[in-house]
Amino acid sequence: MNIFRLLGDVSHLLAIIILLLKIWKTRSCAGISGKSQLLFALTYTTRYLDLVTNFVSVYNTFMKVVFLAASYATIWLIYMKFRATYDQNHDTFRIEFLLLPVTILSLVANHEFTLIEILWTWSIYLEAVAILPQLFMVSKTGEAESITSHYLFALGSYRGLYILNWIYRYYMESYYDLIAIFAGILQTVLYCDFFYLYITKVLRGQRLQLPA
């Protein structure tokens, strides 16, 4: 555990909590892509299967359980409890365009051709692109609430901080995982445009509105 990894995890946790609180407090999931949340739930489910096969640390187990629970709670809020507020007409990203390439890539580019390893690889590739339905929704409606922007910023920062963690681990522990690094860089790159808007608009007190 190094400072980048810890900050990354804190940022990830913060993002999930911000989203849950936003939906709960406003009693609405307007502006939130249910599809992205479904993809994140799939990501955590397939990645954390090792929760039952091997123990890493109390921290590791605790965080995995929290991410899984929070993810399913979010799905429940969007698709059950506050379903009437779910903006389905704007959540039109075709996720099969993500699932198909991710599945093919995980079958071709993995560390080992075993079920658990392929599912782990699948989750890594899927996470990299899981935010696309949400970003598509923001671009479609042309705006995002401040709180949604904070959520996206925290969620985007998390993998960026993980990249610093991987650089650190490469030099300090000679550890690296090319699959995670490749997907992590792609994931962070996808947020770049949003980061720019967040810094130039939201942090200056303006609404996140895209140029027409």
Binding site: D9, D50, N60, Y176
Partner: peptide, 10 residues
């Protein structure tokens, strides 16, 4: 180190 190893990251 690279490849399959026990994964300590989230």
């Amino acid at each position: 180190l690279c490849g399959v190893m026990y994964k300590d990251e989230l």
